[in-house]
């Protein structure tokens, strides 16, 4: 399009704005990311491999993936249910539910972690009961999973609620009028309508689940090879002046995040026809 629309700024202003945006992204985003990879590979590929296959690193990677594998599906289920309830039904405590969903966004991650220490710690409300039964939550994997679920649970719901609100109820009503059951309506109509939003929510939740530091740090106990997730392991390595290894693991974490983004782009590209057909 070469014709100027009335809203458009002059050419110089336009390029200036684009330039500023790119410069900003380069400075804030690409430079640190590039540094991570540069530092990670400065010692050569062999050093990098050694750092990410060393036993504490391996267990940190495993733990991180395990935590994400539990937290993300649970939050997908919760996010779908909450978005469905909020956008397709009317009930009394809707504003309250909406506020609660936002809670983890407004609470500091450290506080999110402390909540679980207060509940399940040895001095906490359920501490002695759990201890008597030999159930470990805090300073063990369950605590890390709980804290991760807490900090990631708004992502899917928050992504879906505006989308489903915008889409309204008429597609679902059409399906119902055509004889579909509630489940059929959800599966054949609602889910396809929201799949890109859902996928995006899943990716965001997954990225945060793998990258969460604050809340997990509080409940982890920092036991090497056992309750250190990748971000915590990176901190440990960094604090041991083992910078090459710290950056190696950090670069792996960054790669995991990039992989999810690439996956999303591939899916969008493969289904661009279907997306265009949606008309929005």
């Amino acid at each position: 399009m070469s014709r100027r629309s009335p809203l458009q700024e002059s050419k110089a202003v336009k390029w200036l704005l684009i330039g500023v945006a790119f410069l900003y992204i380069a400075l804030i985003l690409l430079l640190p990311l590039g540094t991570v990879f540069y530092e990670a590979l400065r010692g050569g590929v062999a050093t990098w491999m050694e750092a990410v296959t060393e036993s504490n690193a391996r267990s940190a990677i495993t733990l991180t993936l395990l935590v994400a594998a539990i937290a993300v599906p649970l939050n997908v289920a919760f996010g779908l249910a909450a978005a469905w309830a909020i956008t397709k039904h009317d009930f009394r405590f809707k504003p309250l539910l909406l506020t609660l969903i936002d809670l983890p966004f407004s609470v500091s991650p450290v506080v999110s972690g402390l909540i679980y220490v207060l509940l399940f710690g040895a001095q906490g409300w359920f501490g002695s009961t759990l201890q008597d039964r030999g159930i470990e939550i805090i300073f063990a994997v369950p605590g890390i999973v709980l804290a991760t679920i807490f900090v990631t649970f708004p992502f899917v719901a928050r992504e879906l609620i505006p989308l489903m609100t915008e889409q309204g109820k008429s597609d679902e009503e059409a399906a119902l009028s055509l004889g579909a059951s509630g489940w059929q309506t959800f599966w054949h109509v609602t889910l396809p309508n929201i799949r890109w939003g859902l996928l995006y929510g899943v990716l965001l939740a997954n990225a945060r689940a793998m990258g969460e530091f604050g809340a997990v740090s509080v409940v982890s106990g920092h036991i090497r090879g056992e309750t250190n997730t990748m971000p915590l392991h990176i901190e440990v390595l960094y604090n041991e002046y083992n910078f090459a290894a710290a950056f190696a693991v950090a670069s792996l974490l960054a790669v995991l995040a990039l992989v999810t983004l690439v996956l999303k782009s591939i899916l969008e590209w493969r289904h661009r026809g279907a997306i265009a057909a949606r008309g929005h």
Binding site: S170, E173, P192, N193, A277, R278, G279
Partner: peptide, 13 residues
């Protein structure tokens, strides 16, 4: 019943 909506409500996918 058969129901026709003002804004069609066709399934876009």
């Amino acid at each position: 019943i058969g129901f026709v909506f003002q804004h069609y409500a066709l399934f876009g996918h």
